[in-house]
Simulated scan of single mutants.
Amino acid sequence: MRRFFLLMPLAVLLAAVVVVLATEYVVARPGHRTKDVAYVPASAPDFDKERHILDVYSPNGAAAKTAGYPVVLFIHGGSWTSGSKNIYTFIGRRLAKQGVVAVVINYRLAPPVHVPEQAADCAHALAWTVTNIGRYGGDPARIFVMGHSAGGGLAALLATDDALLARNGLPQNPVRGAIMDDPAGLDMYSYLKEMKYEGDQQYLVPFGKDPAVWKEQSAIYKIKPGMPPFMFFIGGETYPSISGSAGRFRDRLKVIGQPAQYTVLPGKHHIPMVLQLYWQHNIIYQELLKMVGA
């Protein structure tokens, strides 16, 4: 039975990447990881010491580089209810090896918070990046966002929702481009109104029951001229709602005169779309490096 993007439980994803993580200890790992940096002040009333943190991966010698490297902020998936930056160390290391400063973040999960709070967390992480990334060798004028699955939907909000950023310390949108890796949640308004797949009720946990919130947290309704460029990578065997909403997003971009690069990877299912990022020469990195100018 075909479901939406009923993402694999975190335990399954952990099992799928265990070999990848183990291999990290026996292969060359160029670059430097700065771990568990708080992007929200510890004095904030809602500070979460486990979720309001991020890791920065810098190429070797980045701090001494005069111009600064391009920056990619990566947001993990997990149905808005699971996931951790610690699963995706391979992405940070692969980006750093190829001349990109990577920021891999945690954010609070549902329950007890909902997607609006998660989007605010991501915006806070982006604001931290703008202010601080120069100390890690990154160029604050060249910041890009990237996400897989639910993280793709959150990354799309950072690229499109200027009001969200303004509420969280960014009066101007600093995002220079968005890389969507099999993104989920681009149009939760349409999806939750239809409720046509078994198990769809689970998404009311992170999104709530108010259709106005579903629409507000769907980046497809925030498309407007002047946005940063988007780049899509969609699995040829992914969930139909992911390919469908991504295709509609692409079409709306074309209508406003901002056609997006849109690549379908034949035979790829949803989870392998992120696992392939372990290999530094895969097509996503190849095209990402062109976008960011690494």
Rank of each mutant, 00 (worst) to 15 (best):
F74G: 09
R108T: 07
L126N: 00
M195A: 13
K65Y: 14
A64F: 02
Y136A: 06
V18R: 02
R176Q: 15
R29M: 12
Y278E: 06
Q217V: 12
P174R: 13
A120W: 05
G137A: 06
H269P: 00
A67S: 14
A184M: 13
R2H: 12
F230V: 01
G61I: 03
L186S: 10
R94V: 15
P266E: 13
V20T: 12
Y189P: 01
F4Q: 05
G177N: 11
P206K: 14
Y136L: 04
G185R: 11
L54S: 12
S82D: 07
M195F: 06
Y203M: 09
P59D: 05
H270Y: 00
P228R: 06
S82C: 01
G99S: 10
A63E: 12
R3V: 03
N132F: 05
A11N: 01
I133K: 04
A178D: 13
F90L: 06
R167T: 11
Y239S: 15
D121C: 10
Y69I: 08
L265K: 11
L158G: 10
G61H: 09
G134N: 05
G147K: 11
P30T: 12
L265H: 04
V101Y: 14
V175H: 13
E117M: 05
A127Q: 05
L13V: 08
E117T: 14
V56W: 04
G153R: 05
P225Y: 05
Y191G: 00
G147S: 14
V274D: 05
M146K: 02
G151D: 08
H270P: 02
